[in-house]
Design a protein around this nucleic acid. Structure first.
Length: 289
DNA sequence: CCACAGGACGGCT
DNA sequence: AGCCGTCCTGTG
């Protein structure tokens, strides 16, 4: 495949660092020139910000412009979203200014499900290492600028892994969860194409949670960070609980704050943009703590 | 050596 | 419904 180029001029709300470091993705890595290189589906791309332009180059499985528009959620007006959220309160305005270049990626559903099952009780550097090992063993190799990249394996390919194989890749207790979920999806006991047709967000969450290793947090992350793109969901992890307690609840012990309490406040304050607000808050709190 | 960090899940109340 | 111990690995 040939290298393709695409340049975005005067694009607003697009900051590679914010997009790739806000915790939504695991396969983008910063380069020496501060650009980012990553792999998704069968594409390997480099994304570089120069002055007011975004320069994207790489090996693409199809038309680069279409692929970029879809993956980087370019048809959504983040400026308008930020204007609306800034009116909620001063706290959110500060968080939003801090992560002003965040966009929520439309990531592959299958990859997002597996990646966030791995994220359970885990930290980002380790999650990234595990996913790289899975891709290297079960994915397809793509060469880009004399370096080897590996696609995230498809369902069939990952289904070749035994529980023991997965344990060897460092998955720990998540090995069986990944194994079982892969089998359920392979055999279409849960059909991902059918899942994509579900309209009701609660029904969708329940379906996702039928997969082993998918609890409320993982289900919400999948709905927010994949092409399912439910912007109204508000994944609550320890960081979000912390920041929401600091901003709105102020209990002496943040562990005493219930998930439901946090979700209720988020819904009331941020409405159908809660998911985007969550990303600004999460990124701000993590980076400034 | 130990303490801690990070969600799902099953067992218990 | 809520609480709590367990699961695994890396870091300090």
């Amino acid at each position: 495949m040939e290298k393709q180029f695409y340049k975005l001029e005067n694009v607003k709300s697009f900051e590679p660092t914010h997009i790739f470091e806000c915790g939504q993705c695991f396969r983008w890595n910063v380069q020496e020139d501060l650009s980012y290189t990553g792999i998704f589906k069968n594409n390997v791309l480099n994304v570089k910000k120069e002055n007011n332009s975004i320069i994207i180059s790489g090996i693409c499985d199809g038309n680069i412009q279409k692929i970029v528009e879809d993956y980087f959620d370019l048809n959504r007006n983040y400026e308008e979203i930020k204007e609306r959220l800034a009116k909620v309160d001063e706290n959110l305005k500060i968080a939003e200014e801090y992560g002003s270049g965040i966009r929520l990626l439309n990531q592959d559903l299958w990859e997002t499900i597996i990646s966030f099952i791995i994220s359970a009780n885990n930290n980002i550097p380790r999650i990234k290492k595990i996913i790289e090992r899975i891709a290297k063993k079960y994915g397809e190799k793509i060469l880009f600028e004399n370096k080897e990249y590996y696609t995230f394996p498809n369902v069939e390919s990952l289904s070749k892994a035994t529980v023991e194989d997965l344990r060897e890749l460092g998955l720990g207790f998540r090995d069986k969860r990944i194994y079982d979920t892969t089998k359920i999806i392979l055999e279409k006991q849960i059909d991902l194409e059918e899942l994509e047709k579900i309209k009701d967000v609660n029904l969708l969450r329940e379906k996702l949670m039928e997969l082993p290793g998918v609890g409320e947090k993982v289900a919400d992350c999948v709905m927010l960070f994949s092409s399912l793109k439910r912007l109204e969901v508000f994944p609550v992890d320890v960081w979000v609980r912390r920041v929401m307690n600091d901003l709105y609840i102020n209990k002496p012990d943040e562990n005493k704050v219930s998930k439901e309490e946090v979700r209720k406040i988020a819904k009331q304050k941020y409405g159908n943009l809660a998911g985007i607000a969550q990303q600004y808050l999460f990124y701000w709190k993590r980076e400034t703590s």
